[in-house]
């Protein structure tokens, strides 16, 4: 109890503390007690890494001999692609938590991760498209990577659509968890099929960024920006989870208020 009380003090002084600290959902409360002090530090670390990474990406990293300054778009494109995939992995772990342990926190994690992952995947598509226009001469080519990301984006929209169809949160959580896991099994297969389809239709026409051929002068800023994006994702996800827990509390209280009014 002592840890919880001290952790909550800056957030909820006085009588509010009592009602914040204790709840019928033990784990969400403990989660809040853990997250509330961590979040400001995480946000600060994110801001710091971002400042460092973006500064390096824009001012320090050299231009590519082939692509010129457009290589700067890569510093946004690659990290958002990474997080688009990372987020689905995180949602899959949360889905296991939902289905196997029926953990309420896993429901919250899965629900709040979906829109954030969608946003990063969307950003990946937009930056990829803006990178493609000067490099390929068109905003969109049915390149294997872009196509796979587009499908990932569609899968994210499906999960959000599912969440938005059902009012009861725990039922929606289980349905979305099943869809997430099926997606997790299918994403590698989709990736493989799209690669196959692409090589059949466009034999090596587009520029490819080979993994080990990236020069360290570009790789280091890229790693820093990727770290910044990851930290931003974690901060946003934890904050969104906190919001969702509070939203559910508000809902419970509103139901009680309605019940009281009816008596």
């Amino acid at each position: 109890m002592t840890m919880k009380d001290t952790a909550l003090r800056p957030e909820a002084p006085g009588p509010k503390k009592r009602s914040m600290a204790i709840t019928n959902l033990a784990n969400p409360s403990r989660f809040l007690a853990l997250v509330n002090p961590i979040l400001p530090w995480l946000a600060a670390a994110t801001a710091l890494t971002f400042a460092l990474g973006i500064n390096q990406a824009i001012f320090v990293a050299p231009d590519d001999y082939q692509q010129g300054a457009t290589v700067k778009i890569m510093f946004l494109h690659v990290p958002s692609a990474w997080l688009g995939m990372f987020c689905w992995g995180l949602m899959s772990i949360a889905a296991l938590g939902t289905l196997i342990w029926r953990h309420p926190l896993a429901d919250v994690a899965g629900k709040t991760a979906a829109p954030i992952g969608t946003a990063f995947t969307f950003l990946c598509l937009v930056t990829g498209s803006l990178w493609g226009r000067p490099m390929w001469g068109t905003y969109w080519v049915w390149d294997a990577r872009l196509t796979s990301v587009l499908i990932l984006f569609l899968l994210y929209l499906g999960v959000i659509a599912l969440w938005r169809t059902v009012e009861d949160p725990s039922r929606a959580a289980r349905a979305a968890a099943i869809l997430t896991l099926v997606g997790a099994i299918n994403i590698p297969i989709i990736k493989f099929s799209v690669d196959w389809w692409n090589t059949l239709h466009q034999p090596a026409s587009v520029f490819r960024l080979g993994g080990p051929s990236i020069h360290p002068a570009i790789l280091v800023p890229l790693a820093v920006v990727a770290l910044a994006f990851t930290l931003l994702f974690l901060t946003l996800h934890l904050a969104a989870m906190r919001n969702e827990i509070l939203r559910r509390r508000v809902r419970t209280l509103q139901l009680m208020q309605a019940q009281k009014a009816g008596e």
Binding site: T70, I73, V126, W131, R133
Partner: peptide
Amino acid sequence: GPHAAFIVTAYAAA
């Protein structure tokens, strides 16, 4: 370079 608009738009989108 010649593609400044695309780079700026990408960063603005982000």
